[in-house]
Structure formats: structure tokens, C-alpha cells
């Protein structure tokens, strides 16, 4: 009995640790965003006498004082919109292509399957910096620098291997006979995919959609190189432009915290939806998978 009690205490402490580890950084970033600059400079671990919304107002463009650091603050809102316009196509097109590839890999056997799958997955190993200059040169030649199209294309290549892998595992768990029934009932293979497989795989496909969206929403490096400083600048480069570490001129961390806090609203909402689906994902071993 005593061992049981000890175990319970241990589990309770572990739960507390996991909770704090996860939530504490979020909490203090939000805390900082409601402090005035002078208050924050005296230490973050204290009560806030007069919580201020100044930083948020400034980001929304409501504050009187024009941005103190090169007018970068008002680019946050634009970056938010741009990121949406880039992330949605990436999520939609990426999920569509990966659904086809995942279906082919997860359901069928064909010559050189393992090799082709490895080839696809290995492209994920490629560090983005390694292909930065070629991309930049190529896109400049065809006029895609400073254009969301180039960024969307880049993100698609980055995310499709991962999505294909995730969906492949999901498709492999679907009942084969339902698919066969649809073939008998008059569906071509592509119709089976559309009318039967995709509806049945909706949780997995939703998860893939969210993974793709988050990837595009969060990415920084290609954002800087391909659209940084242009009117298509996405959110991560826009945030970095007001970071106290990298901004040109004075930028307070409290303002940066407020902007960061706003930027995570869409990811957090998606993650909360996602967690219902991610537990149902079946990540398969690409070496030993055999239909």
C-alpha cells in the first residue's frame, strides 16, 4: 500500500513538472507583453501594477507614437496576412499531393518501392541553407524572388516527403475490403480514392493539413531570403525585424513579446484541434512496411 502511495505521489509530481515545463515559457512571455518597458527592466518576476495594452495597440497601429524602430511594427499585421496567404495554399496543395503519394506507398507494392520511399524521405535530411543560394538564383532568374509563388513552391518541397510518410502510415491502417468493395461497386482507382479513401482517412488528412500549415506559418530562413523586406514579407521575418537581438535600432522586448504572442494564435488553435488526430496517426517503418 505504501508503494502505491509513493507511486501516486511520483506520478503527481511528474504531471506537475510536465505542466510547468510546457506552460511556464508561454506564461512569462505573455506576462512581459503586459508590462511597460521600464517595469520589465526591473525584473519580470513581480506583480504588474498597471497592466498595459500599449504594445498590442502599437502592433494594431492604434498608438499615437509612430513605431520607434524604422516603422517595422506595422509590418507585423501585414506579415500575419501574408503568412496566411502562403500557408493555406501550401497546406492544401501539399496535403493533396501527399495524399496521392501516401496512398500509392501505403497501399500498393511496386518495383523499387523501398528505394523510392527512401529517396523521398532523404530529401527531408537536406538542410535548407544548403539549397538557399541555388533557390535564390533560380527564382531570381524566373522572377519569383519577392513573390509568394516561389515561397509556396519552396515550402511544398520541404513538407511533401514528411506528409507522404505520415499519410502512408494512415492509409495502411484502413480496411482493404472496403476499398475492394468500392472497386466492385463501379469505382475506378481514382474514384475509390475520392469517394471512399479520403473520407475514411479524414483524421489523418486533417493532421497532415495542420502539419503543413504550421510548417509554412513558422518558417523563417526562406522567408528572409525570398520575401524578406518586400511587401510579401511573412510573419517570422517580420517578427525578427523587431527582435531586440537583430532589429536595427532600439526595440523593447515587451513589444516583441506582444507580437510573438499574437503570432502564435493560429498555431495554438490548430494544435488544439490536431491533438485529437495525432494520436490516431500510425507512423510506419519505411524499411519493413509491406502490404
Amino acid at each position: 500500500m505504501k508503494r502505491d502511495a509513493n507511486l501516486k505521489l511520483f506520478v503527481a509530481l511528474s504531471v506537475l513538472f510536465v505542466f510547468l515545463w510546457t506552460i511556464v515559457p508561454f506564461f512569462w512571455m505573455l506576462w512581459a507583453s503586459f508590462m511597460t518597458d521600464s517595469e520589465l527592466s526591473t525584473g519580470i518576476v513581480q506583480g504588474i501594477d498597471d497592466p498595459t495594452l500599449d504594445h498590442y495597440n502599437r502592433i494594431f497601429g492604434h498608438a499615437d507614437e509612430e513605431a520607434i524602430h524604422g516603422g517595422q511594427t506595422k509590418l507585423i499585421g501585414q506579415g500575419f496576412l501574408n503568412s496566411l496567404l502562403v500557408s493555406l495554399p501550401v497546406a492544401i496543395i501539399g496535403t493533396a499531393i501527399a495524399t496521392l503519394a501516401g496512398y500509392a506507398f501505403g497501399r500498393f507494392n511496386f518495383p523499387a518501392k523501398t528505394g523510392l520511399l527512401f529517396g523521398l524521405l532523404l530529401t527531408r535530411v537536406l538542410p535548407p541553407v544548403a539549397i538557399l543560394i541555388p533557390y535564390f538564383t533560380m527564382f531570381r532568374t524566373v522572377g519569383l524572388v519577392g513573390d509568394p509563388g516561389g515561397l509556396i513552391l519552396t515550402y511544398l518541397t520541404g513538407i511533401i516527403p514528411l506528409l507522404s510518410w505520415v499519410l502512408m502510415g494512415y492509409f495502411a491502417t484502413l480496411p482493404l475490403e472496403v476499398e475492394r468493395a468500392a472497386r466492385i461497386d463501379g469505382c475506378s482507382r481514382l474514384k475509390v480514392l475520392w469517394y471512399v479513401i479520403i473520407p475514411m482517412a479524414a483524421p489523418g488528412i486533417s493532421a497532415a493539413f495542420i502539419i503543413a500549415f504550421l510548417f509554412a506559418w513558422n518558417e523563417l530562413l526562406f522567408g528572409i531570403i525570398l520575401v524578406g523586406g518586400t511587401k510579401w514579407q511573412t510573419l517570422s521575418p517580420a517578427l525578427l525585424a523587431i527582435s531586440p537581438l537583430t532589429a536595427v535600432g532600439y526595440s523593447p522586448i515587451a513589444l516583441f513579446s506582444a507580437a510573438s504572442a499574437l503570432s502564435i494564435a493560429p498555431p495554438l488553435i490548430l494544435a488544439l484541434i490536431f491533438q485529437r488526430y495525432i494520436t490516431r496517426l500510425n507512423i510506419v517503418d519505411p524499411v519493413t512496411v509491406r502490404e
Binding site: T22, N218, S236, L240, S260, S263, I264, A271, L272, I278
Partner: peptide, 12 residues
């Protein structure tokens, strides 16, 4: 909740 750190960007 534990998924949230993964959902936010490296910049944040």
C-alpha cells in the same frame, strides 16, 4: 497542452 511548444515557431 504539451503539443503547444511544438506548434509555435522557432522564432517565438
Amino acid at each position: 497542452l504539451i503539443l503547444l511548444p511544438w506548434a509555435v515557431s522557432e522564432v517565438v
